[in-house]
Amino acid sequence: MSEQPEQSAGGPEDTSPDAGTSPGAEAPERSAWARIGHDLSHPGIGQVLVAVIVCLSSFAVVTQVRSRAVDDPFAGMRRADLVTMLDSLSNSSRQLDSELVELRDTQRQLQSGADSRQAAQKQAAARLAQLEVLSGTVPVEGPGVTIRIDDPNSKVTSDMLLDAVEELRDAGAEAISFNGKVRVVANTWFSAGANSVIVSGTPVSRPFTIRAIGDPHSLEEGARFRGGLVSQVEAAQVGATVTIAPAQRIRIDAVATPAPMTMATPVR
């Protein structure tokens, strides 16, 4: 800072008239260090006083430093500042409270929205599964029967197969396939072909294997009732044999490709 000459007022001792004077005010340069060394090795009563005061000062400094390290930063603040700070803190606390209420509200809204969306999604998934099975676009498996029709005389006609499908449906069949090649769906059609039966445009050759998924017992009964599939096919003029094998697990891999609806549109 300001470079003042030594004799300018500055130290508390400078102004004292009774300070010990010595001729060495303009002491030789090297004597300062020598004097310090000499005084350090020859302690006097004055140094004890200095030591006591230095001890007090360092004690105070340590106390202050430690109290600052331990205490919270508000301990040294004045009352007005504290009141202002408390005011602003309670203000912001109130703001945050109202914000919290708003956010809780939003959370509740979003949650209920998510719940209803989830319910709708579940419903849609169930409906999708149902429609997929109905329209035959996915492989299905479940309990059912495998009906094998051996027709050595080639007398089984497409009408008989159509009747068989209708009887199986009547007995609760949910999915039907022919020879593992054709899935029977809503728009499946039957016609007679050369040496085979045509189902939805696919020739199905003898012997026929019908797989139907549904309650095995009902399906078997539906096929066996008097005037039904078995009695019709095993009649003397047809001469075919029917083997019905119920199973708890039948897999139908054949799928139908749905044709796009070009004409019919739903009426709302």
């Binding site: 001792e13 300070a19 010595s22 002491a27 200095v50």
Partner: peptide
């Protein structure tokens, strides 16, 4: 500065 005094200091 050779002007030190115990009494003044205290």
């Amino acid at each position: 500065g050779h002007t030190f005094s115990d009494k003044v200091f205290v």
